[in-house]
């Protein structure tokens, strides 16, 4: 058995080396053709792409498209159309192999191929995490507004779609495209998934988004909702909500309240911040101390006096740390 495996290594190794050399030769020809096509798709001499080589070709084409500008992308797309490869890629969307599907999904996205819409929509709803996410990304390339409408339930709900990657797609689409769909999602307050939408909200237009989120202040006791709303406080008119949240049983809400009080508060909010400075949770005390230093109209010597006169040593120490951090900044 061991010897058989030894033989398998030798045979597989030989096969792989042969394939690699062959692919390198073919890829060289493709590369030349793709470079020509980037200038003039009709003049490019693309060799015939066999069935076995098609996924490999599409992967190479996709790689090139990831970094291509708008005009080059259009020309490279034309090249596929001229050789009927776009049709073949569309058929690949229905293959069982994940590799074939992924190559076809990505290509359909780059081609902004409306004929792929139904297949991509189906894959985005029913595929596994990787296929569905790739399909969602392709839909967002083809028609971002329509795609955001279609995906507005999946984006909060599918926690298997990596948020940090989804965020980079949102960032690429730009605030003018994503703001309204984000508002729709925020107004729906999806549970679970609201935290995902709130994190994505930073890629929308802040003035529109924050007014919606601030509106939650009086209408929810949910910690995630409150934290998001407190982070959007820009106006003293909203301070009563922040003062109310300073007593919330969830420490993350109290921490957000401390931040909000420091951001827009003045001397009047001093008692609330002093109370938060005695909180049992380190992070609440930390943000209360920084909030206190930021308070409008409070002089440094007053804060220093407060620190020296504090009866609670935890509060005094935290204030000392915040003052030192401010000096070092």
């Amino acid at each position: 058995m061991g010897l058989l495996l030894l033989a398998a290594i030798a045979v597989l190794g030989a096969l792989r080396r042969w394939r690699r050399r062959r692919m390198e030769a073919i890829e060289n020809r493709w590369r030349n053709a793709l470079s020509q096509a980037a200038e003039d798709p009709r003049g490019a001499a693309l060799p015939t792409i066999g069935t076995w080589d098609l996924p490999h070709f599409l992967e190479a084409w996709n790689r090139m498209l990831e970094s291509a500008d708008e005009q080059t992308a259009e020309r490279l797309g034309t090249l596929l159309g001229l050789h009927g490869i776009d049709e073949r890629a569309l058929r690949m969307l229905r293959k069982r192999s994940a590799r074939l599907r992924l190559a076809a999904i990505t290509a359909a996205g780059h081609l902004r191929e409306p004929r792929a819409w139904d297949d991509l929509e189906r894959l985005s709803q029913h595929g596994g995490p990787i296929v569905s996410f790739a399909a969602a990304r392709a839909l967002l390339r083809i028609d971002p507004r329509r795609a955001l409408d279609v995906l507005s339930h999946s984006i909060p709900a599918r926690d298997d779609w990596p948020l940090a990657r989804l965020a980079s797609v949102f960032e690429t689409l730009g605030p003018s495209v994503v703001t309204n769909p984000l508002i729709t999602m925020l107004l729906r307050r999806p549970r679970p998934g609201l935290d995902r939408v709130v994190k994505l909200a930073r890629f929308g237009q802040p003035e529109k988004i924050s007014s919606i989120v601030r509106g939650w202040l009086g209408s929810s006791t949910d910690p995630d909702v409150l934290m998001a709303a407190l982070a959007c406080i820009e106006d003293r008119a909203d301070l009563p909500w922040a003062l109310g949240a300073a007593d919330h049983p969830e420490w993350r809400v109290r921490m957000s309240a401390a931040r909000a009080l420091g951001k827009v508060g003045n001397r009047e909010e001093l008692p609330a911040l002093l109370q938060l400075l005695r909180d049992p949770v380190w992070w609440v005390r930390y943000h209360a101390a920084h909030g206190l230093i930021r308070l409008e109209g409070l002089e440094p010597h007053e804060i220093e006096a407060m620190r020296e006169g504090a009866r609670d040593s935890f509060a005094a120490d935290m204030l000392g740390q915040a003052l030192a951090e401010r000096r070092w900044a």
Binding site: R63, R165, A167
Partner: peptide
Amino acid sequence: VTLRPLEGLPPVQTALV
């Protein structure tokens, strides 16, 4: 091996890492 062509795509948004 299947995912190698998609490795790092789309890139992660550093603010959320």
